[in-house]
Amino acid sequence: MNPRRKKRMFTILAVLLGIGSAIGLTLYALQENINLFYTPSELIEGKGENKEKPFIGQKLRIGGMVVPGSVVRDEESLDVEFKLIDTGPLVTIRYHGILPDLFREGQGIVAQGVLIEPNVIEAFEVLAKHDEEYMPADVAEAVKGIKHEKPKYNLNNGGY
């Protein structure tokens, strides 16, 4: 191999190694900030074809409906505990802080936190969803014709 080709090959290898290192370091730095979204059913039963469940200590986001009658507030602190449901099992959310103004029983919420038990999340952020009937025009057009399943849980009578 002549010296010119050898120099080009080493230059290309150095550039590829530098790019690979930069991507690897970026992914390593972002690893702690990656939050996966789960529903209560996915959290308990597993997500995807392989039914993969999150591990204890994993950061995640979870969304569902607040079960009526499940909100328990500590009288001496800002600690709140409530249960979430979608179409299956219940998940307990523990939160320390002031809940959003739109938070109420029977309302959809998204909580971000850490899984501390298989069905318990220690949340550090709770976001209340707006009215379930509202939908932006472009989203309404995109989902036109799609039929949604009603949840098995009946919020009116408090049972299945």
Rank of each mutant, 00 (worst) to 15 (best):
L16H: 05
L16C: 09
L16R: 01
I19P: 10
I19S: 10
A22R: 10
I23A: 15
G24H: 15
L25W: 14
T26P: 04
L27T: 12
Y28I: 13
Y28L: 15
Y28F: 15
A29Q: 09
A29F: 13
A29M: 12
A29Y: 11
L30D: 07
L30C: 11
L30W: 08
Q31L: 04
E32Q: 13
E32K: 10
E32A: 12
I34N: 03
N35A: 14
N35R: 13
N35W: 10
N35V: 12
N35H: 12
F37E: 14
F37H: 14
F37A: 13
Y38D: 03
T39Q: 02
T39M: 04
P40C: 12
P40T: 13
P40A: 14
S41K: 06
S41V: 09
S41T: 14
E42P: 01
L43Y: 14
L43I: 06
I44V: 15
E45Y: 13
E45R: 09
E45S: 07
E45A: 06
G46K: 01
K47N: 02
G48L: 01
E49L: 05
E49I: 08
E49G: 03
K51A: 04
P54T: 00
P54Y: 00
P54W: 00
F55C: 05
F55G: 07
I56K: 00
G57L: 01
Q58N: 01
Q58P: 00
K59C: 06
K59S: 13
K59Y: 08
G63S: 12
M65S: 11
V66E: 08
V66A: 04
V66R: 02
V67G: 02
V67C: 00
P68Q: 02
P68I: 01
P68H: 01
G69M: 04
S70W: 00
V71E: 00
V72D: 02
R73I: 04
R73E: 11
R73C: 07
R73N: 12
E75K: 10
E75P: 05
E76L: 09
L78S: 05
V80F: 06
E81R: 08
E81K: 04
K83G: 01
L84E: 15
L84Q: 13
L84H: 10
L84T: 11
I85G: 07
I85S: 10
D86H: 06
D86C: 09
D86R: 04
D86F: 01
D86A: 09
T87R: 14
T87N: 15
T87Q: 08
T87V: 13
T87I: 13
G88D: 06
G88P: 08
P89F: 13
P89W: 09
L90M: 10
V91Y: 11
V91C: 08
V91G: 08
V91D: 13
T92S: 04
I93F: 02
